[in-house]
Nucleic acid binder design. Structure first.
Ligand SMILES: [Mn+2]
Ligand SMILES: [Mn+2]
Ligand SMILES: [Zn+2]
Ligand SMILES: [Zn+2]
Lengths: 146, 146
DNA sequence: AGATAAATGCAACAGTGTTGCAGAAAGGAG
DNA sequence: CTCCTTTCTGCAACACTGTTGCATTTATCT
């Protein structure tokens, strides 16, 4: 399912900007900051348009978002219908390369809280060093000590 | 254990600013943003000093921090030696009053990730409406419909 | 094609968090 | 106590995320 198709299944208007933005998200399939999305966009879209578009996608339920360790929102689009898709999975953030990935194979655990408290959602972010960066680091060390 | 005592157990210098800041954190015992701390401080401390002090406390291990749903760090000091104190517990953030609380009775679940990946820490934030705000809302509704 | 509602771009703003630097203060030595 | 060194504090400036208001452009429907 491509960007155009997904957008036509919603009530919002199909525009070149929206198609491009959703295209980027579908291409990467990992949570991206506005800045990362902007960098992969062809031409000078406005920051504000990008923010508004991402918020709109979120409201329409075609993306989910997570906050990373730097306090910026990251938006991610998966195939609609994917199990655990609306964001009900934990994420991993790499402090070296800054990338984030969805841990789609896990679901978020349920926690009991006090009686009156209303839990509307939950976020879980693991952080550290991703596979790619860990491997690179190891081989650098080995090269250094040889 | 008061602020002065805690600070004297570390290698950093004891200053009035630090004592005041740690005093505020110990008094509230819930994760506070720099802004909330500043509001409870007597006089015109500089923003930068506050940020630097909180970072220092973090490095010394006398506070832990969590990021809230607005992307701001919140710092919290508990009694040292409290079980699950270094921040290894989930938190709850209220979207109405903006306050955050530590769910000290829970510990963070362990998740299996890929082989090479290095997990250095994890954050879990539940969000919604806290007890206080939920009760207030309910009684307001009841008053309205009577 | 024309009308209308919505999307885009621009300017300005509020807020968090960071850095560099100069003056003030803490802690230790004599 | 006094001096000295280290480090803390405050100030100015900055980078960045995210938001709002408004004018202009564009998509969609008749
Ligand atoms: Mn995800
Ligand atoms: Mn806590
Ligand atoms: Zn990485
Ligand atoms: Zn509340």
């Amino acid at each position: 399912m491509d960007a155009r198709e997904i957008l036509q299944n919603t009530s919002i208007r199909l525009t070149p900007v929206r198609e491009a933005i959703l295209g980027v998200l579908l291409n990467e399939r990992c949570p991206m900051s506005y800045r990362e999305v902007a960098a992969r966009l062809p031409g000078g879209q406005d920051r504000v348009t990008l923010y508004r578009t991402l918020s709109l996608f979120l409201k329409e339920g075609i993306v989910h978002r997570v906050m990373d360790m730097k306090g910026t929102w990251r938006f991610c689009a998966h195939d609609p219908g994917h199990p655990g898709c609306p964001g009900n999975h934990p994420h991993f953030a790499c402090r070296v390369c800054g990338r984030m990935e969805c841990l789609m194979e896990h679901s978020l655990p349920h926690l009991e809280v006090g009686p009156e408290t209303v839990v509307e959602g939950k976020h879980m972010v693991l952080y550290g060093i991703c596979r790619g960066c860990a491997v690179k680091k190891t081989s650098k060390k080995e090269a250094g000590s040889s």
